[in-house]
C-alpha cells in the first residue's frame, strides 16, 4: 500500500469512480443519486477540513461558512449569467480559498485558538451578510431551476446524474490531493506544525506560509463542495446553506474516522454519512444530529485516533 505512487493511486481511484458511476447508472434509482450525492459532498468537506485540522492541527469551525460561500457564489453568478457547473466549482473554490487566506492571514499569526474562534464567528457574519443581500435572495432564499437534462450534442444525461458524477470527481480529486499532500514535503511541514510549532519555527520551517497554504487549500475544497449545491437543492436559503450539520459533520467525520491520514475522513464520511441518510429517513434529523454530537464527544475522549487508529492498533497487536 505504501509503495503505490500518486499516479497509480489516481488511476486506481479514477477506475473505482468509473465503476461506481456505472453501477449507479445500472441501478438508476433517483433517490440513490440524491443520497449518495450528500455522502460524496461530506467526503469532500471532511477531507478538506482534515487538510487543515488533521495535518496542521488548526481547528476550523466555519466549514458551513466556506461551503455556503461556494453555494452563494454560484447563486450570484447564476443570476448574472448562468455558467456551466464545472466553471462554477472553480469560481467557488477561488472565492472560498481567498476568504480562507484572508482569515488565516489575520488570525494565524496569533495563538491557535484565535483562528478557531474567528472561524466560528465568520459563519455568523457571512450569514448576516447573505440575509441582508437581496440580490442573492436575502432571507427569503433563491430559486435555482435545475434543468431536467444536460444536453451535450445528441446525448441527454439526467441532471442529477450529472451532478452526482461531478461530486464523485470532486471527491476523488480531494482524496488524491490529500494523499499527495500527506506524502510530500508540504505534508511533512504540516506535520511539524501539528507536533510542535515552536520547534518547527526554530528549525526554519516557514510555519505561517505553510498554515496559509493549508487554509487556502482547505477553504477552496469546501467552496468546491458548495458550488453545485444550489443546483442540487433547487431552492437555497441562508439557514440551509449555513446549516449546522455541515460544521459538525466536517469535524466529526475526520475525528471519528481518524485525522492522521486521508483514509480517516473517507471512512468517517462514508460511515456517518450513510448512517445519517438512514436515520433521517427512519428516525428524525434532530435525533441523528444528537447522535453525531455524542459520537464526536465520545470519540475524542475515548479513541483520540479514530477508527483508523483503532484498526491500526489491533493490527499491530496481532502482529506482535
Amino acid at each position: 500500500m505504501k509503495s503505490v505512487t500518486t499516479a497509480k493511486f489516481s488511476l486506481i481511484a479514477g477506475a473505482i469512480g468509473v465503476v461506481i458511476l456505472l453501477i449507479a447508472h445500472a441501478v438508476g434509482v433517483d433517490y440513490l443519486y440524491f443520497a449518495s450525492y450528500t455522502i460524496l459532498q461530506f467526503i469532500v468537506l471532511a477531507t478538506a477540513w482534515n487538510i487543515l485540522g488533521g495535518y496542521c492541527g488548526y481547528v476550523n469551525f466555519g466549514s458551513a461558512a466556506f461551503f455556503a460561500l461556494g453555494a452563494y457564489s454560484s447563486v450570484f453568478i447564476h443570476k448574472l449569467y448562468p455558467l456551466p457547473v464545472p466553471l462554477l466549482i472553480v469560481i467557488g473554490a477561488m472565492v472560498s480559498g481567498v476568504v480562507g487566506l484572508g482569515m488565516g492571514y489575520l488570525t494565524l499569526r496569533l495563538r491557535g485558538s484565535f483562528f478557531a474562534i474567528a472561524t466560528l464567528a465568520l459563519a455568523v457574519v457571512l450569514q448576516t451578510l447573505v440575509v441582508n443581500w437581496d440580490f442573492v435572495g436575502g432571507s427569503r432564499g433563491a430559486y435555482i431551476i435545475r434543468p431536467e437534462y444536460l444536453e451535450i450534442g445528441s446525448f441527454k444525461i439526467p441532471y442529477i446524474e450529472y451532478l452526482f458524477a461531478l461530486m464523485l470527481a470532486l471527491a476523488i480529486i480531494a482524496l488524491v490531493s490529500a494523499r499527495t499532500i500527506e506524502r510530500s514535503q508540504l505534508g511533512f511541514g504540516f506535520a511539524t506544525i501539528r507536533d510542535d510549532e515552536l520547534a518547527a519555527e526554530a528549525c526554519g520551517v516557514p510555519t505561517l506560509k505553510l498554515k496559509l497554504i493549508a487554509t487556502a487549500i482547505s477553504g477552496a475544497f469546501m467552496g468546491m463542495a458548495g458550488a453545485p449545491f444550489p443546483y442540487y437543492i433547487g431552492y437555497l436559503q441562508p439557514s440551509s446553506a449555513f446549516g449546522l450539520e455541515y460544521a459538525v459533520n466536517s469535524i466529526a467525520m475526520p475525528m471519528i474516522g481518524g485525522t492522521t491520514s486521508w483514509v480517516g475522513p473517507l471512512v468517517g464520511a462514508v460511515l456517518l454519512g450513510s448512517a445519517q441518510q438512514y436515520a433521517t429517513v427512519t428516525i428524525s434529523s434532530a435525533v441523528n444530529l444528537l447522535i453525531v454530537g455524542l459520537m464526536l464527544v465520545g470519540f475524542v475522549i475515548i479513541a483520540p485516533n479514530g477508527i483508523v487508529g483503532l484498526v491500526q492498533e489491533r493490527l499491530r497487536r496481532k502482529r506482535s
Binding site: 501539528r194 469535524i251 454530537g293 455524542l294 464527544v297
Partner: peptide, 22 residues
C-alpha cells in the same frame, strides 16, 4: 488540548443545543 479539546467543547455545544431542541 489544542485540537481535540476544542472538538470536545464544540461537541458539547452542539449536544446541548440539539438536546434542548428535542
Amino acid at each position: 488540548d489544542a485540537l481535540r479539546g476544542l472538538a470536545f467543547f464544540f461537541g458539547l455545544l452542539f449536544v446541548t443545543e440539539v438536546a434542548l431542541i428535542l
